[in-house]
Nucleic acid binder design. Structure first.
Length: 369
DNA sequence: CTAATTTGACCACG
DNA sequence: CGTGGTCAAATTAG
């Protein structure tokens, strides 16, 4: 348990350090005269606009908060059932833009169906978990659709927050069985809950078996009809549930994105497409953010080419099962959904180009193993 | 009865 | 035009 906590702490520290760095940088940009050494711009491309920096800072802080919450949750659940429940997660974070809310926009009258689609994904959280466990994430969802997905054996189910109409909560999630392993569900969370649901965290995640989690958090806006503006976009810090024991991240280029399994393939999406525009947000900001945000502060990957970026990262830790570390990994590896078997190997290439100054989860992972 | 799910149609996007 | 996401009427569950 300690180790797991440690893993998390590292992550939190990383986030905070990154936040600090970003803040310094912003400061130096705002007040060029004074000198607050902003280190190299690791994560930030040396040319981020103030706006971008602020967004990143916000994002970083949110993550740190989420991690802390995670730790807390894990602690609880662990206490409750120290059994095995591993969770596998990865944070992929998307574009730095954080707010931009207030969609409202035009609701031109289209027929009565489907208005405009949100289509904006900032952060993503995806979650894989075993079917048998189909754990609750603590929120109540209402299914609103199901669709067969091309190339997938199983249909994808669409859920929205039960309190959508009542509280204007726009959170949604998509659940789909893994092609490879029907026992595994891939869950993609989109948007964050703005509703207040009693249960959540507490009951979150309790799986007798393994749970893989990746989370995808998006914020799309655009409401439909005219309903909505009331949504106040405030993001309660707690939103996330207890994922965290393990992380698996896989990033690959858009072009190949569908080649892979269900695991987590994130392409660098929307980012440069719509709004990023002016500011210089590199296409891979998403990836970079993820990597560096989740791990180390001074992590700037030149991201080299924008193609074929592929990272796989796993970490155990976080708390959930104390004794299962080893088996966890095994599971992961063997699970069809999980990618290859040597996360570490994959990760190595990153290590090569980056130097970490803090040991993050990865390192711990090995220990856990 | 109300609430949730099912399911085919609708729609935006590429 | 195909695909994925959403709507909403019909159906089922509580």
């Amino acid at each position: 348990m300690e180790e797991s906590t440690k893993c998390e702490q590292v992550g939190v520290i990383g986030e905070l350090m990154l936040g600090e760095e970003l803040t310094k940088k912003l400061y130096s940009q705002l007040f060029p005269s004074s000198s607050v050494s902003s280190s190299s711009s690791s994560s930030t491309s040396s040319r981020d606009t103030n706006e971008v920096l602020i967004e990143k800072i916000i994002s970083t802080m949110e993550k740190a908060i989420a991690m802390v919450n995670c730790m807390a949750n894990v602690g609880e659940s662990k206490a409750k059932n120290g059994s095995m429940m591993d969770s596998h997660c990865s944070f992929i974070n998307g574009s730095p833009k954080s707010e931009v809310m207030e969609p409202e926009v035009e609701h031109r009258d289209v027929s009565k169906k489907r208005k405009t689609m949100p289509r904006r994904r900032d952060q993503v959280k995806v979650c894989l978990e075993t079917a048998e466990g189909t754990k609750e994430d603590g929120y109540s969802w209402r299914k609103y659709g199901q669709k067969d997905i091309l190339g997938a054996k199983f249909p994808r189910a669409y859920y929205r927050c039960t309190y959508r109409n009542i509280q204007g909560c726009l959170a949604t999630k998509q659940v789909q069985k893994s092609d490879e392993d029907p026992m595994v569900n891939e869950i993609t969370y989109i948007g964050r809950h703005t509703c207040t649901q009693a249960s959540h965290l507490s009951k979150a995640v309790v799986s007798p078996s393994k749970t893989k989690t990746v989370i995808e958090e998006n914020q799309h806006q655009t409401n439909q009809k005219n309903q909505p503006q009331q949504e106040k976009i405030e993001h309660p810090p707690e939103k996330i549930f207890s994922f965290g024991s393990q992380v698996e991240v896989k990033v690959e280029d858009l072009d190949h994105k569908q080649g892979i399994f269900p695991s987590f393939c994130f392409s660098s999406p929307s980012i440069g497409s719509e709004n990023e525009d002016n500011s210089n947000i590199f296409p891979y900001s998403m990836i970079e953010n993820n990597l560096m945000e989740s791990f180390s502060p001074a992590f700037i990957s030149p991201t080299t080419s924008e193609s074929d970026m592929f990272c796989h990262w796993e970490s155990t830790g976080l708390g959930q099962s104390v004794h299962s570390s080893t088996s966890d990994i095994t599971d992961i590896v063997s699970t069809p959904t999980s990618v290859t078997n040597s996360p570490i190997m994959d990760f190595d290439f990153l290590l090569d180009k980056i130097d970490f100054d803090i040991d993050f989860p990865m390192a711990t992972t090995e220990l856990c193993t």
